[in-house]
Design a protein around this nucleic acid. Structure first.
Lengths: 106, 106
DNA sequence: TATTTTCTTGACAATTTTGTCAAAAGTAAA
DNA sequence: TTTACTTTTGACAAAATTGTCAAGAAAATA
């Protein structure tokens, strides 16, 4: 089976509420055709949709952000042989950079 | 200290060989100003530079690809609160999708 | 310091990506 | 099936990103 894209996820949420595309588009402040294209993977979703979607569908914003970002990243490395290694390396860099909440030992 | 970007890394490799920018640009088949801008972070490096760079500087291409991709990913999530979580989630997705070389059990 | 070579810069051209409009296609209700 | 509503589509406009040119700044060398 294929992984659901973020756009398809939006559609699922929207339809679960019987909300017309036009209405969600208005809330997102974009043209309805743009939303249609996003939901059908002809355009990429944008970062600033996230807080609006979280509000509209009563989802945890942080969780949704993570979902959005993860999908964007996957989209970027999708055809890459070594995507997984790249992710791991990127992760190390971040983990290293990010100051731990508690002091690291050594 | 700041993390070295991929562009800065190129410059380091290049200077280690006393190779003029103009010459590497020619090998990469781009304008020297473009390379200059890449090395000084005014433009983003592109995917297709990687194999050329690997060859020119005698580096392992896979390793260099990973380095390139990781940097691109970091660039994308750099200002994100939840970048690390996103990477982890993306990683799970890939790991799951990717067929193991040996059969997975169950 | 004059000359040559290398690197950087700003303005703009080219390309890519995105968003919109308006009409068509699809769906459901009267 | 007409009518009303929703979604999709294609052509194009707008925006963002990238690459180039040509001139100038900086650095090295004579």
């Amino acid at each position: 089976m294929e992984k659901e894209t973020f756009g398809e996820y939006i559609r699922r949420l929207r339809e679960a509420q019987d909300m017309p595309l036009r209405r969600l588009a208005a809330l997102l402040d974009i043209d309805q055709s743009t939303l249609s294209k996003i939901e059908t993977n002809q355009r990429q979703p944008t970062r600033d949709m996230v807080p609006v979607l979280a509000k509209v569908f009563k989802l945890d914003e942080k969780e949704l952000s993570v979902k959005f970002l993860a999908e964007r990243i996957l989209y970027y490395v999708q055809d890459e042989e070594n995507g997984l290694e790249a992710l791991k390396l990127a992760e190390e860099s971040i983990a290293y950079k990010k100051p731990a909440k508690k002091k690291s030992r050594s």
